[in-house]
Amino acid sequence: MPNRPQPDLPEHDTAAFWEGVKAGELRYQTCNDCKEVVFTPRAHCTACGSGKLTTKAAKGTGTVYTYSVVRQSRHPNFADLGAYSVAYVDLDEGFRMLSSIVGVNDPTTEIKIGMPVKVEFEKQDTGDYPIPVFRPV
């Protein structure tokens, strides 16, 4: 199993997101006042400053906006992964998140910009929180 770093909680802005992950939900927020989609999670709307946000669960489907494959990382938690991908994924609800594309044999050739992907909650060797990653659909 992978051993990605865990979120360091409690932390005020991101706690609800990670509780959602534990419950199998990919959470994002919308503003009650101006309808802006807010992500990464915060306690205020980044368009109008309102504190009235609603937390929702995304369907978990989206497309790869861009990606790279890390061939050299000195981070100890990633030493065993070999070449691994990082990507910005545009979710269908209109938010962009940093994640990783999994489930491909060779990330250097099989990941494409614009590729449809779906979230999965990847269990980790250690820690309570699975990590949301994306797999091509």
Partner: peptide, 13 residues
């Protein structure tokens, strides 16, 4: 981790 942005980025290396 431990910050509003770090908690969303550090898991991905």
């Amino acid at each position: 981790g431990g910050t509003w942005s770090g908690n969303m980025e550090s898991p991905y290396g």
